[in-house]
Design a protein around this nucleic acid. Sequence first.
DNA 1: TCCGTATAGTCAAGATACTTGACGATAATC
DNA 2: GATTATCGTCAAGTATCTTGACTATACGGA
Lengths: 167, 167
Amino acid sequence: MVKELDEKIETLPDHVGWRLWQASRAWQAEFAAAMRAAGHGWFTEARAGLLGHITRNGMRQSALIERSAISKQAIQQLLDGLEAEGIVERLPDPQDGRGKLVRYTSKGLDALRDGDRVKMEIERRYVSRIGEERFTALMGALRALAAGQAAAMDEDTGAQGEVVESK
Amino acid sequence: MVKELDEKIETLPDHVGWRLWQASRAWQAEFAAAMRAAGHGWFTEARAGLLGHITRNGMRQSALIERSAISKQAIQQLLDGLEAEGIVERLPDPQDGRGKLVRYTSKGLDALRDGDRVKMEIERRYVSRIGEERFTALMGALRALAAGQAAAMDEDTGAQGEVVESK
DNA sequence: TCCGTATAGTCAAGATACTTGACGATAATC
DNA sequence: GATTATCGTCAAGTATCTTGACTATACGGA
């Protein structure tokens, strides 16, 4: 009974959203695995997302809130964790008694360096997997998409619009 | 004071991983917003991820566990939620007293239909945003990447390898 | 100077989406 | 029948994020 219907079983989807999700997940899994293998066991996806916004010179917690899209409370909790792991440290801002500066520790900077290396390795693997031409096309399309999206939301919420050309 | 340092502020990253993540998040946000706007307020990203694995004919809960990568407990909890929302229903499997069949309710099928419509709309928007050629290149690269990844893990853990052509 | 208001960060509580571990019930195998 | 494996459930804990309430500091006037 069910058997005949099973002939028509759907395969997993094959639209942009699914493909993007799939590729994104695969990248993250590869990156996280490599980072953990490199001795950075504290590494998680959420933390990575936040670290991507912290400049190497350190920055105000409030600036971090603007740059990343999540609530200040979430950021604080993530920072609590990162601080406990010894990746970043929080210092009082000498210019503003209310503020705090978030800065990488040397352990954190080490992790960043490893992260850069891992990223390049993965990128190399990707290129060898699908060919340079396709890879370039992929990046071009993704950048165009991001630029289009930023333009589409036009009410500049910041953060997204400055992604590409700023430097 | 801080200003001079800000000249050297790092921009947001521009590597594959970041771009994929960014694009994936943007797609999901757009999709979820459209779904909620279409009256499917129960819609969340995690639920979408699971629903993407449930065929329209319904399937065994255990089959669902194999297909999606997450633990059976997580699946159960997601199904609990979906069942409470009236999107799916669980019936005893007549062929196996231990098993249960997960099936869409008519409300669930309605949502799927809306989902398909929304997906196509978004895809159309994407095409008009970056051009058909680029969009095609994007899809091609993403598919190649997925195929390469499936091949790379070679120890067929299932789930990933069978994505496209399986049947 | 004092006062109102905005900003920076914290504390507390709760929701969601997972995890591992232990368990009962049914099926399959020998 | 006894053993072993599979299917689903229950319970508890973790990570990540949310909203709401609060404190401390800064700033911009009267």
